[in-house]
Design a protein around this nucleic acid. Structure first.
Lengths: 268, 268
DNA sequence: CCTTTTTGTGATTAATCGGGTGACTTCTCG
DNA sequence: CGAGAAGTCACCCGATTAATCACAAAAAGG
């Protein structure tokens, strides 16, 4: 809606995608013009005129802008589809090369691992999401999952759940609210669902930096992941433990036995 | 094969993907260790010990490593699959947001366009590739394509070609060598192929900064794209013109009539 | 043809960021 | 309790990047 806001956002995103500020400004500037000269661009983007040339040159070498070598020379941005496709290609190529490089390396050295009680923490919505999916896919016996916020019920997650349930794994999913439970039953029809009775899971009054429950995942009764979301920063943080004897896991099992999952049977 | 080399490459790639040097070093360091402390990591990666903590914290917040809050605390990298998946997600999210932002903007202002003869230049393998594909898909009548190097015959390109040929567009593809022609007939069976007789298209003796032909694309006899590859830098550069009256296009048509495409009939 | 303005290049300065180091507090363990 | 390791901070300095300026080349326009 608000163009100015979107412009700023686009500039920021382009910088996150690796462009410098001037390059980003020039690109969105050109995106709003069918075509423009250095002067036009400079006026519209606040980029010093003499620096427009450098910026555009970089953009051209990345396939985001085309240049007409006349005098004065004119610039124009490639179409939105071409631009995003180019960016995607670029990134995909890098990630693939990274995969290969790390693959040929992975030859680990000294095993610096202590096979005792371990509790790891990780944060970032994305990373936690991926870890969740992976853990679910590795389950052989039982998956217990409690979801605290509907935004966490992604399609990828549903895919993982449906895949594992089709392999004969028992799937028990809890929700904090009834509407959420309905959503779950729609996306993962084969799961046994329930509404958790643990009040402390609910995000109280949404005060400042109140901490709400994110997910709670128990795999084969021996691996657990619990995450929370601070309502202010919306950053998700998780702790994660594995091993049947792991303290965290033991607590989780006890918790479960007590009433998190009401008697293990569906409905009510 | 050579681990050391791969390590360096991985570090470079991670930096291109947005990590700082220390972060990149720490991540590949942890990738070779099942788990490690700040000291271990510092020794292995040449990152000052006191800075390992910052770096790892950032990595954790991005979902690339997990931390055990013991003393001394231990770090470990997530699996290769999780890491690449996380990176992909992150990027995809950014590109999508960019798409939206630019979409709400695109409301162009003053049309600063000159509808006269225009020849644009663009560079970068990726961008040129995308432009090529897009132009092909827009063809309504005829596509003439000459490919100068087999590396340019990508799957995406073949897809575009096959798609457009199924819409009844005449497709004529030239190659510089016979093996290349064979490849083309395999990937795009419905195309009429030939071997170009234009000697200057061939990359002479591969001297220093010799310039070899990349692609030559003529769409509906009114839009043309010609690219070259400097053998040294392997950078691809292209010029691009549209409009039936465009000078560049006129030359291309004449060139074609002369013998680029031998009499327009298949084989020999 | 000469003047004036615009265009493009290059060098130069200023500010920011990231790599690198060391001081200092806290913790662990003998 | 004391030595050494772990962890946190604050700082320095070099490189990158934003920003300005000086100047040559080229158009525009009398």
């Amino acid at each position: 809606m608000d163009t100015n806001e979107s412009v700023e956002e686009a500039i920021g995103l382009l910088q996150q995608l690796g462009l410098k500020e001037y390059e980003a400004r020039c690109f969105v500037g050109l995106s709003r013009l069918r075509s423009g000269t250095a002067k036009t661009l400079s006026e519209m983007t606040e980029v010093p005129r003499t620096r427009v040339y450098d910026a555009v040159r970089v953009l051209e070498s990345q396939g985001l802008v085309e240049v007409q070598h006349s005098s004065p020379q004119e610039f124009r941005a490639v179409s939105l589809e071409e631009a995003t496709e180019t960016l995607r290609d670029q990134y995909e190529a890098r990630v693939e090369r990274l995969e290969n490089a790390l693959d040929t390396i992975d030859i680990v050295d000294e095993g610096d691992d202590t096979p005792i009680q371990q509790v790891w923490s990780l944060s970032g919505q994305n990373g936690i999401e991926n870890r969740t999916d992976q853990l679910i896919e590795e389950a052989t016996d039982e998956v217990v999952l409690v979801i605290g916020d509907e935004s966490l019920l992604t399609d990828d997650l549903a895919d993982s759940l449906n895949e594992v349930v089709s392999n004969g794994v028992t799937l028990i999913i809890g929700a904090l609210t009834e509407p959420l439970e309905d959503q779950i039953q729609t996306k993962v029809p084969d799961a046994t669902t329930f509404i958790t009775g643990l009040e402390w899971l609910h995000s109280e009054n949404a005060t400042e930096d109140e901490t709400a429950i994110g997910r709670l995942l128990l795999i084969d009764r021996s691996t657990i992941l619990v995450s929370s979301i601070t309502s202010g920063s919306k950053e998700e943080q998780a702790i994660f433990g594995e091993g049947f004897g792991n303290g965290l896991v033991v607590i989780a099992r006890r918790l479960m036995a007590q009433g998190l999952v009401p008697a293990h049977d569906p409905g009510q």
